[in-house]
Amino acid sequence: MKSKLLLSLLALTLAGTAAAQVKPEDAIKFRQSGYAFMSWNMQRIKANVEGQYNKDEVIKAATAIQAIANSGMGALYLPGTDHGKGWEETRVKPELFTNKEGVGKVAGAFVKEANEMAKVAAAGDAAASKEQFGKLSGTCKGCHDDFKIKK
């Protein structure tokens, strides 16, 4: 029991140290890359639920989105990353760094719906996948509306 606790504490310490060593511009790049990859996978699902449905494509895309949702990307919103440039200027609103309750709510909803999307996709029902995709997309919109600067 003590060794498990010690290993858990060590893992948390190392994870915290690794996040602390990320340069702000790299953190912005990493999160921009994650969201770009997620966007591509959202487009893959959309094309399938609005066109010729391919269960395998939807499963692949939903699994990728689920992985991103559960990856801990929140750790990339370090102090000093509310402005600056990664691949491009960040468009995060300052409220993301001050409204912890609001961020927690939208992040939790996204993770929930991403996990459900992967589950629904695996079942292979096109209509259910389309319905769940709508719910998942809604969580993205909610975050964009509240925490992303429009172009």
Score class of each variant (00 low, 15 high):
residue 1 M to Y: 03
residue 1 M to P: 07
residue 4 K to V: 08
residue 10 L to A: 13
residue 13 T to Q: 04
residue 13 T to A: 15
residue 14 L to S: 06
residue 15 A to C: 04
residue 15 A to M: 06
residue 15 A to Q: 02
residue 16 G to K: 02
residue 16 G to I: 03
residue 18 A to Y: 06
residue 21 Q to K: 12
residue 22 V to D: 01
residue 22 V to K: 02
residue 27 A to K: 12
residue 27 A to Y: 11
residue 30 F to T: 08
residue 40 W to N: 10
residue 42 M to F: 07
residue 42 M to V: 13
residue 43 Q to P: 00
residue 45 I to K: 13
residue 49 V to S: 08
residue 51 G to K: 05
residue 52 Q to W: 00
residue 54 N to I: 01
residue 54 N to T: 02
residue 58 V to R: 08
residue 59 I to E: 09
residue 60 K to E: 08
residue 63 T to Q: 09
residue 63 T to N: 07
residue 65 I to L: 15
residue 65 I to A: 07
residue 66 Q to G: 05
residue 67 A to Q: 10
residue 69 A to N: 06
residue 72 G to S: 10
residue 79 P to D: 11
residue 80 G to H: 03
residue 84 G to K: 03
residue 85 K to R: 13
residue 86 G to Y: 10
residue 87 W to Q: 05
residue 87 W to P: 00
residue 88 E to M: 06
residue 93 K to G: 05
residue 94 P to Q: 11
residue 95 E to F: 10
residue 96 L to C: 02
residue 99 N to T: 02
residue 100 K to A: 03
residue 100 K to Y: 01
residue 101 E to I: 06
residue 102 G to T: 05
residue 106 V to K: 00
residue 109 A to G: 01
residue 111 V to Y: 01
residue 112 K to F: 06
residue 114 A to N: 12
residue 115 N to D: 15
residue 117 M to T: 07
residue 118 A to M: 04
residue 118 A to Q: 08
residue 119 K to D: 09
residue 119 K to V: 01
residue 123 A to T: 10
residue 124 G to P: 00
residue 125 D to E: 02
residue 128 A to C: 08
residue 128 A to I: 07
residue 131 E to C: 00
residue 135 K to L: 03
residue 135 K to S: 01
residue 137 S to W: 10
residue 137 S to C: 03
residue 141 K to C: 03
residue 142 G to R: 14
residue 143 C to V: 11
residue 146 D to N: 14
residue 147 F to L: 10
residue 149 I to L: 14
residue 150 K to P: 00
